[in-house]
Simulated assay, not measured.
Amino acid sequence: MKKTLALFCLSWLLLGRAFGYDFVVAQDGSGQFRTVQEAFNAVPDFRKKVTTIFIKKGTYKEKLILAGSKNFVKIIGEDLNQTVLTYDDYNQKKNIFGEDKGTSGSSSIYIYGGDFSAENITFQNSSGPVGQAVAVWVAGDKARFKNCRFLGFQDTLYTFGYGSRQYYKNCYIEGTTDFIFGSSTAFFEDCTIFCKKGGSFVTAASTPDSVRYGYVFKNCKITGETPAASYYLGRPWRPYAKTVYLNCELGDLIKPEGWDPWGSESNKKTAYYAEYQSKGKGAAPKQRVPWSHQLTAAEAEQYSRDKVLRNWNPTLD
Rank of each mutant, 00 (worst) to 15 (best):
K197G: 11
E257H: 05
I180L: 13
P208Y: 05
E257C: 07
S210C: 13
E189A: 11
G182C: 04
L233D: 00
E189W: 13
S183T: 14
E225S: 13
K197F: 06
K269G: 01
T156M: 02
Y231V: 01
T177F: 11
F153P: 01
L250E: 04
T192S: 13
F217Q: 09
A205W: 03
K218V: 02
E225W: 05
P256W: 08
P208E: 05
S266R: 08
N219A: 14
G214H: 03
C191E: 03
I222S: 01
S184D: 04
T226R: 01
L233Y: 04
V216M: 03
V216T: 14
G198N: 09
P261A: 10
T207C: 02
R238S: 09
P227K: 12
A229T: 08
G163Q: 02
K197W: 08
Y172E: 13
A228Q: 10
F153Q: 10
F201L: 09
Y158C: 13
S206H: 05
S206Y: 04
G182P: 07
F188E: 07
A229H: 12
A205M: 08
T243Q: 06
K169C: 10
Q166A: 05
I173N: 06
N267S: 07
P256M: 04
F217E: 08
Y215Q: 02
W237S: 14
Y168E: 11
I180S: 09
Y167H: 14
F217L: 04
A205I: 08
D252W: 07
G234A: 08
N247I: 04
K218F: 11
K221M: 10
T226L: 00
G251D: 13
Y273M: 14
W259R: 09
Y231C: 00
E257P: 01
S230K: 03
S210R: 15
I254R: 00
V244S: 07
E265W: 06
T243H: 11
L250A: 07
T226E: 05
T159M: 14
C248E: 07
V216Q: 05
D252K: 15
Y272A: 00
K218A: 15
Y167Q: 12
K242A: 01
Y272C: 00
A274R: 11
P256F: 06
N170W: 02
W262H: 14
F153K: 14
S164L: 10
N267A: 10
F217K: 06
T185G: 04
Y158E: 12
V211P: 01
V244L: 03
K255P: 03
E257S: 14
C195P: 01
Y232E: 04
T270E: 09
A228H: 03
R238V: 00
S164M: 02
Y276H: 15
K169S: 15
D155E: 06
A271T: 01
E189V: 12
S210E: 15
S200N: 13
T203F: 04
L250T: 06
L253H: 02
R235G: 05
K221Y: 10
K255V: 10
N219R: 15
G251Y: 02
G163M: 03
E174G: 04
A228G: 12
K242V: 00
E225N: 15
Q154F: 05
I222A: 02
A204W: 08
F153C: 11
W237R: 10
Y240H: 13
A229S: 12
E265M: 14
P227I: 05
G175M: 09
E249Q: 15
Y158F: 15
K221N: 10
S266G: 02
E174P: 06
T159E: 13
G263Q: 06
Y245Q: 02
S230R: 03
G198R: 06
I222M: 01
